[in-house]
Design a binder for these strands. Structure first.
Lengths: 311, 311
DNA sequence: CGCCTTCTTGATTTTTTTCAACACGAGTGG
DNA sequence: CCACTCGTGTTGAAAAAAATCAAGAAGGCG
């Protein structure tokens, strides 16, 4: 590990105190981080393992750390943090709760599982009992077709809530799989229901997040309806950029959480088509790509390409 | 009007008494109805106009009437029918309500607007105040793209509930337009919220129907993800067939509620592609088509084509 | 070092769109 | 009653786009 990277990491880890008032980071990835230098140590933050990979490039490690740092004020993946201290609570819970109401909710969310890349949170037709809030990392949800193929229905980032598709018939209609080291809050839905009858603002909040999921699914349908591969991918990149920005991450420089295969599956294209569009956009200087690290150089062009006439 | 058709119509209209116990119809369209004979009269049922067209073929009129008859026990489009008597109440409301609770809900749903073909129920960015239950007819919902194009997000049939996309940011994100003579129940959402805190089963029901909408949107994404036009259209026809069957209509013989253009828009194809697939399916004897009247001759082939390998 | 997964690139084939013409019925007006 | 137009749907030929098939590059990992 180069001294430069070590210095930044130490600084980051040091600022990760479990305090609700810790200032929010706005971090850009410096070009100094290199893929050449490989870190073989386990990386711990406040005693929690955030990377189990045996070898990881400095650049990727740096990405991982600042990603976790900027999505939560306190220790990423730390299962002991309460809703009172959680930076995501504004997304997760309605505003205006009293301290005692918050504590009541905190009591309800006892479990905050830590998933490693590839771990399955729930499977299609598992009994529906919980909804989950993503605290860090990334989750993909997918439906199994009658032919046994997996069709990805969404990618979920910190602050997003998943599992609500299971309310209808008591079983999840999707499966949920971690694309990276991911921590989630596991919330028992029956307790939500009871609490929601007592706290109208919680009931309203539940309606709101479900409505938001409906709108977001329809936005996805909109992207899939664009018939040009380039338009789909550009629209997806813009949507991802906006979501990172909402997490106070850079809007123009980030790492794709998913593989080309997952992306192609989600967008209804083949891997080859995705790869070709990426190459084309890179040749046009619209984006720079290094494996899954994306830099957006020309957001206007991306926007124009996403909106291209397609019916 | 031929005597044969007149006889059937009189029989149908006669059985349309406003009684909750009226038996449900299971009706097939007889081949005798002809497109040649044109009805130029207004058609009334229990004093409510169900067709305003100046000229309509017997066949289409017959379709219209039995469609309305079989979706409701009582007078179609009749705004005075109460939830107590509505045949759709099992879809619309949770089971196990007491008579007084039902009356309370009935009180809340005072308005049951009647829409003619092309009428707009609400527009994108209208203030969200109501959700709507389709009682008869068909509604399409659509999102306006930044370029001003309309992208259809769904088709809704009797028993379906629309407008829940508006909860999130106080404004509808879709517009809703009638594709046919359509009646809806207009339900004030703020009153739903108040009532739902008092009646846990109503709260649960709201969560359920929103969850169902999420699942249904994801099913649509699944159809759009199939990259072959034939697979998309076959999957859509099967889905429509199932929905008609759920309304106790024939699963194999019905009328497309939407134009080729709307269908193409919804499926992310061009009008020409839709037309070509229809022609191909007709040549293969899989379906018969007469304008918008569809007869499914070979459901297995349709199923196989819908499931065709496409990734 | 070699195996495996992921990603890229090229050549070919299939599919769909696009452009253009035409058919048909409904509604209109002479 | 008949020509006319308009909206809707069909069909054909050419062009564009994406899938498919095939091969190879790069990096993680044992």
């Amino acid at each position: 590990m180069t001294p430069e990277i070590k210095r930044i990491m130490v600084k980051l880890v040091a600022s990760a105190s479990c305090s609700p008032n810790a200032s929010r980071h706005k971090i850009e990835l410096p070009a100094k981080a290199s893929n050449a230098n490989v870190v073989k140590e386990k990386v711990l933050m406040n005693g929690v393992c955030i990377k189990q990979l045996k070898a990881i490039s400095e650049k990727r490690l740096y990405h991982t750390i600042f990603h976790h740092m900027s999505t939560e004020s306190a220790c990423p993946h730390n299962p002991t943090i309460s809703c009172n201290d959680c930076r995501l609570s504004s997304l997760c819970l309605p505003l205006g709760f009293t301290r005692s109401e918050l504590t009541e909710i905190d009591e309800m969310i006892k479990q905050r599982p830590l998933l490693q890349k590839g771990d399955v949170l729930y499977r299609t037709s598992d009994l529906f009992e919980h909804i989950y809030v993503i605290r860090s990392g990334c989750i993909k949800t997918a439906i199994l077709t009658p032919q046994g193929e997996e069709k990805i229905t969404g990618f979920y980032l910190p602050g997003d809530i998943i599992g609500m598709d299971g309310i209808d018939n008591e079983h999840y209609s999707n499966s949920a799989t971690a694309l990276d080291t991911t921590s989630v809050c596991k919330i028992p839905f029956d307790q939500i229901e009871v609490l929601a009858t007592q706290l109208p603002s919680l009931q309203r909040h539940m309606f709101t997040i479900m409505s938001r999921e409906i709108v977001s699914d329809q936005q996805t349908m909109l992207i899939l309806n664009k018939n040009k591969a380039e338009a789909r991918i550009c629209a997806f990149l813009i949507s991802l950029s906006n979501r990172f920005q909402r997490q106070n991450l850079s809007a123009t420089r980030w790492t794709l959480p998913m593989s080309r295969g997952d992306l192609a599956n989600y967008l209804g294209l083949t891997i080859e088509s995705v790869s070709r569009v990426f190459t084309k956009l890179r040749n046009l200087q619209v984006i720079s790509i290094d494996k899954r690290d994306i830099t957006i150089n020309n957001i206007d062009h991306l926007q124009a390409a996403a909106n291209m006439q397609d019916m």
